[in-house]
């Protein structure tokens, strides 16, 4: 029972499996059915690559003051720089190369987005599992909190917390975590409620396993597929929310330039027709979100047991 769920988390490229009809092989072939999803995955991997290796592939280190020249500020896309390389996407008001800025911005955006989604998954997943496994009063209390929280839009929760906590990387991660954990809790609870009724849990209980072992070793692996689907969508959501909050000036501080801050930085120049400072970081943000959503959509179709052939 547990193997199919565990295999799902393994990176598709690195594993070679001799048998033809293993669950994992079927997962890969099911996933590859949609060309859009494959394109999304490819684009997303490129984005991750650009973010991880930003210091090596960027033409310029945008945060090394020695490399900046204020005379090169607000150059149009395609202008040659004094040093020799071309600013394909133009420069911002400080003379920073936009392409390099976007690579570095992706780093921050992806790190904050995936970090908060991961923490929200851990917190929400644990709460949901506990609620489903123990039931009764514990379930009522946890799910009542979840219900109340889900009745507020996530941006309002994040706004309240950021108004209280102030700016900072840790603070925005806390705000995103608080805004998103309830989605995971609700998803895993509904799956775990179904799984709890099955024979293997009964068998595990008869074997006198500890609660912790049953919850985390037996129940959790079987609840993973829907959690992965929600997780993908929520990473995209976290990235968009972080960009929005940073754009409003209440998210990340200017020392941690995410895509949202780059866009916000270009806002004041937009009215004078210098579109590229806001436009290109926004395009990068949209491509990131759309590619994650494409992968998430296909994962939902593949991992949904009701749609399985």
């Amino acid at each position: 029972m547990t193997t199919s769920a565990e295999d799902v988390t393994i990176q598709p490229e690195k594993v070679t499996i001799p048998t033809v009809e293993s669950p994992f092989r079927r997962f890969v072939s099911d996933f590859s059915e949609s060309k859009m999803a494959l394109l999304g995955l490819a684009v997303f991997l490129c984005i991750v690559f650009a973010a991880v290796f930003a210091p090596y592939i960027s033409p310029q280190d945008p945060y090394d003051l020695a490399q900046l020249d204020i005379m090169e500020g607000r150059l149009e896309p395609g202008t040659k720089s004094f040093v020799g390389y071309t600013h394909w996407l133009g420069t911002d008001d400080q003379g920073r190369d936009m392409l390099s800025g976007i690579f570095y911005g992706l780093r921050t955006s992806l790190a904050v987005g995936s970090m908060s989604a991961l923490l929200a998954l851990l917190l929400g997943g644990t709460m949901g599992l506990i609620a489903a496994y123990f039931g009764g009063k514990i379930d009522t209390i946890i799910m009542r909190i979840v219900d109340i929280q889900l009745s507020f839009p996530s941006i309002l929760i994040a706004l309240i917390l950021l108004a209280i906590l102030g700016q900072g990387v840790d603070k925005i991660i806390i705000a995103l975590l608080a805004a998103q954990w309830a989605y995971y809790a609700r998803t895993i609870r509904s799956t775990a409620m179904v799984e709890r009724q099955k024979e293997y849990i009964e068998a595990a209980t008869c074997l006198a396993m500890s609660h912790r072992r049953i919850v985390f070793r037996e129940l959790l692996p079987n609840c993973l597929p829907p959690l992965i689907v929600v997780g993908t969508v929520q990473v995209a959501h976290a990235i968009a929310l972080e960009a929005t909050l940073s754009f409003l000036g209440i998210g990340l501080p200017i020392t941690e330039p995410s895509l949202g801050l780059l866009i916000s930085n270009g806002f004041e120049y937009m009215l004078s027709g210098k579109y590229w400072i806001s436009f290109f970081p926004g395009v990068a943000l949209v491509i990131t979100i759309v590619s994650i959503n494409l992968v998430g959509d296909q994962l939902r179709d593949v991992l949904n047991p009701r749609l399985q052939k």
């Binding site: 929005t244 009215l271 027709g273 579109y275």
Partner: peptide
């Protein structure tokens, strides 16, 4: 689907750029 994916604030900026500036 695009309307769901594209962040609202960036669409707003682009609308200003196209309809107000250009």
């Amino acid at each position: 689907i695009l309307g769901f994916s594209v962040p609202t604030f960036w669409v707003g900026l682009m609308m200003i750029m196209v309809f107000a500036v250009m």
